[in-house]
Design a protein around this nucleic acid. Sequence first.
DNA 1: GGCTAAATAGACAAATCTGTCTGTTTAGCC
DNA 2: GGCTAAACAGACAGATTTGTCTATTTAGCC
Lengths: 187, 187
Amino acid sequence: MKQRGQVVIDKILDTAERLFYSQGYNATGINQVIEEADIAKASLYKHFETKTDLLVAYVQRTHEKWYQRLEAAISKVADPKDKLLALFDHHTERQEIRQFGGCPFIKANDEAGMSDPRVLTEIQQAKQHSKDFIKTLVAKSGHKKLLSDKELTEVIFLTLEGAIAAASVFKQPAEIQTAKKIIQKLI
Amino acid sequence: MKQRGQVVIDKILDTAERLFYSQGYNATGINQVIEEADIAKASLYKHFETKTDLLVAYVQRTHEKWYQRLEAAISKVADPKDKLLALFDHHTERQEIRQFGGCPFIKANDEAGMSDPRVLTEIQQAKQHSKDFIKTLVAKSGHKKLLSDKELTEVIFLTLEGAIAAASVFKQPAEIQTAKKIIQKLI
DNA sequence: GGCTAAATAGACAAATCTGTCTGTTTAGCC
DNA sequence: GGCTAAACAGACAGATTTGTCTATTTAGCC
């Protein structure tokens, strides 16, 4: 059954996730987190020693949830080439839900990547995870070898990263769909 | 001759540029800016009404200086295809100088893009400027039309954006050079 | 050289920040 | 039902935040 402590931790992390992403880590105060999570300050500091520890937990949980969603979305697509294209559709959907706030890992890296080694490490693992996932899809895709597997993996990874950043600048999904069309020509 | 006020403004903007980029806007206090710029607080508030106005000025000046450097670097390359590849070398150099801190516009957008409409507008103009610049280079490049001009422009822009972000995550220029090699195969 | 505008140092206000601590209430388990 | 640990509200400390204000010194121009 669900422990009492887990309820509180979930409320804290749900709120931190929402605020850290939408406002930024440095612009979000502990007092706002406890108020909107509707928990006591002492409860937060019982589960997280410092605000930095909360940031680390936020990045780790974001990595986990990000991969679960990605894996679930791509597994629904049967055709191996379509799986590659589905990456762009999935991230289009995600950015629409996120109101074009950009990649949470890049945001965390830019704002707080140097503040704690655990933060940088988790972000690097998340991005490596993304690249590895693309790599396995590329290997099974049967693409037309216009580029090598390694190169195709890289160009998909990089256009995806770039498109998410561009979408968050222009506040629209056009760039991500443009990237999809270009990759379609290369596979 | 150089006005007295311009010296102060330059010292403020030089310091703000360095601190806003390396630490982030929200993590940088006005007190740190005036201390490291070695000017009085009243002098800063004489030239910039609020901290947000200083941010706007920082983003605008970064846009100007960014384009001047880019234009100068690419104009030194004669071959039209090499100009396209020189984009990646220029940004590799820039990121090495910046110690892989990533794109200043993406950073400002992620941290403070919503705080003032002038900030978002300037960032959008900077990114559109980048894309337009690439577009003119592509048009003159005589590339092999494996992709259309529009598509090649986009894939260069997006891989460049993605590579700079990836370089700032992994703290190394490898991704930018990998992007260069891939684009080389497409032109 | 003297006038004027700018830059100076630094106190100050009012709010906010992270983190600690005290004492009370609540919830889960045997 | 009573024990125990957890969550609670909220005061508090001490540092820091942006921005204002006063009074003094400095620099440039005629």
